[in-house]
Design a protein around this nucleic acid. Structure first.
Lengths: 189, 189
DNA sequence: CACTCATGCGTACGACCGTACACATGATGC
DNA sequence: GCATCATGTGTACGGTCGTACGCATGAGTG
């Protein structure tokens, strides 16, 4: 009778767990999107990742560090999507098409995208480290647009995209793909 | 010797204080703009209004109620500005001018304006009452624009304005008035 | 002036927070 | 197999929060 009896629900046996830090950052992202930065606590992230509370302070110096890394990861992923969509375009017409698709499928289509962006903006308003993340993200978006449009147009278009997504998601009647296309083409006309 | 001695710093004598509720809402607005919704607590608001903590629970059923009233007040004030600026315009050219002035002076010019908007968007993401406030605000902006532009244009222009303000304020190099004018005129051309 | 009672306030409670740190644990070298 | 020690965890502390509620207070009435 030397087997260890596990009372109350299966103990977690993982001791050495490389990549746990990564999983914690992903868990943090999930919590931010689901519950908001305000509800993103050490305990909540640990629960989401099924990891003991002490593991948080072991892997991160502070909660701010977790937030910064999480937002950085998200911003990079979002910028990658921009690059992909626009990198596939060959001429101006397909670039316009890429922008419409981007807005429809990647920005409005996955509702977390806007939540993450707005959460980041608010957090950045009080936290310089996050402001840098925001600015790097915006720069990458603009750069992607500049592959097909002149700098001034790229900047203005970038702003238009953000405004369209914001108003579409927050509005009671979201914009249809046709309305989005109309707005973009009108601006680039 | 029957005078009351006030030790430790002048007691607040105001007992009957009509309009205190109003002042508390204003104090809440101030705290939100200054420190963010996350730091907006009963105690912080009471301190800002120089009022005892118990006064908060006396005047408001919950902290959410305070936030809702504060954001409602702010949204109305912001929409009033929209109305004013655009109401003064007589023809299309002066309407465009009004939009540019609005963006430059009232939206980018007073930096709290964007902070309040973004704080509201985040709060609204988790709170249906605030979502209604957001939507009413957007509706009033759009209505104001519709006094001079057709509904489709008004909606798209509204989104463009929001995007321009957002990107201008968050960017390291804010847009100049000329750049703003350029973007707006380009869209309305 | 004395009494009454709606109005407004001080204080305390339970919950949750970030963080620190002593200790358990299992991988590693001998 | 055993000693050692880096790695990971359980727990507790000080602080702040929202909210409730018994009591002080002063305006109004006679």
């Amino acid at each position: 009778m030397c087997t260890v009896v596990r009372m109350s629900g299966e103990r977690r046996p993982r001791r050495h767990d490389p990549g746990r830090r990564d999983r914690l950052i992903d868990a943090a992202l999930h919590v931010i999107a689901e519950r908001g930065v305000a509800a993103t606590t050490h305990r909540e992230i640990a629960r989401a990742a099924d990891v003991p509370l002490g593991s948080m302070t072991y892997h991160f110096a502070s909660l701010d560090e977790v937030l910064a890394e999480a937002f950085t990861r998200h911003a990079n992923a979002a910028a990658d999507i921009f690059d992909e969509r626009l990198g596939a375009a060959t001429d101006r017409a397909s670039a316009v098409e890429a922008v419409v698709t981007l807005i429809r499928d990647d920005l409005i289509g996955s509702p977390n995208e806007l939540v993450m962006a707005v959460e980041l903006y608010v957090a950045a308003a009080r936290n310089p480290a996050l402001r840098a993340v925001t600015q790097a993200w915006m720069q990458r978006s603009r750069d992607a647009l500049q592959r097909h449009f002149d700098p001034t147009t790229a900047r203005e278009l970038d702003a238009l995209i953000e405004g369209l997504v914001l108003h579409s998601v927050l509005s009671t009647d979201p914009m249809t793909p046709d309305q989005i296309r109309h707005a973009v083409e009108r601006f680039l006309r």
